[in-house]
C-alpha cells in the first residue's frame, strides 16, 4: 500500500505546483498541454487604424499582479483557444471558457446548460 505524502502548503488554496487547466472540450489537463497566449483584454484594432492604436495593442501591457483574463491554446489537445481567469501571484484558476463566442454557445447548448 502506497502512502501519498501530504501536499506542502504554499500559502494559497491551490496546492498543486503544476497548473491544471479545465479545457471546456477535453476536461482537466496539465498546463504543459497548453500554450500561453497573453493578456485576453487586448483587442486588436482594424487594419487601417492609426499607428498609436496598434502600438497600444501590440506592445503595451497592463501586466496585472492579481487576477487577469488571459488566452491559452490547448495545443496538444483539441487546439481550441480558451480564456483563463487566473491569479498571476498564486496561479489559482477561477474560470475557463472558450475564446470564441460561437464555440462557447455550441458547447453550452450541447451540454444543455452552462459551460
Amino acid at each position: 500500500m502506497s502512502v501519498v505524502p501530504a501536499p506542502i502548503p504554499n500559502g494559497t488554496d491551490n496546492i498543486n505546483t503544476m497548473i491544471r487547466i479545465n479545457c471546456p472540450f477535453c476536461g482537466e489537463r496539465d498546463h504543459s498541454e497548453f500554450s500561453y497566449g497573453g493578456d485576453a483584454s487586448v483587442k486588436y484594432p482594424p487594419l487601417d487604424a492609426p499607428a498609436d492604436q496598434w502600438l497600444e495593442a501590440v506592445f503595451q501591457r497592463e501586466n496585472i499582479d492579481g487576477v487577469q483574463f488571459e488566452t491559452w491554446q490547448h495545443l496538444q489537445g483539441c487546439r481550441m483557444w480558451i480564456v483563463v481567469e487566473r491569479d498571476t501571484t498564486t496561479h489559482e484558476i477561477h474560470s475557463v471558457r472558450p475564446a470564441h463566442e460561437g464555440i462557447a454557445q455550441a458547447l453550452a447548448s450541447d451540454k444543455g446548460g452552462e459551460v
Binding site: 497548473i19 500561453y36 501586466n63 487577469q68 498571476t88 501571484t89 496561479h91
Partner: peptide, 13 residues
C-alpha cells in the same frame, strides 16, 4: 516557465 507569473515559484515541466 512559458506563462506570465509574479510567483517566485517554478513549475515541474
Amino acid at each position: 516557465d512559458w506563462y506570465k507569473s509574479y510567483a517566485q515559484r517554478g513549475n515541474l515541466p
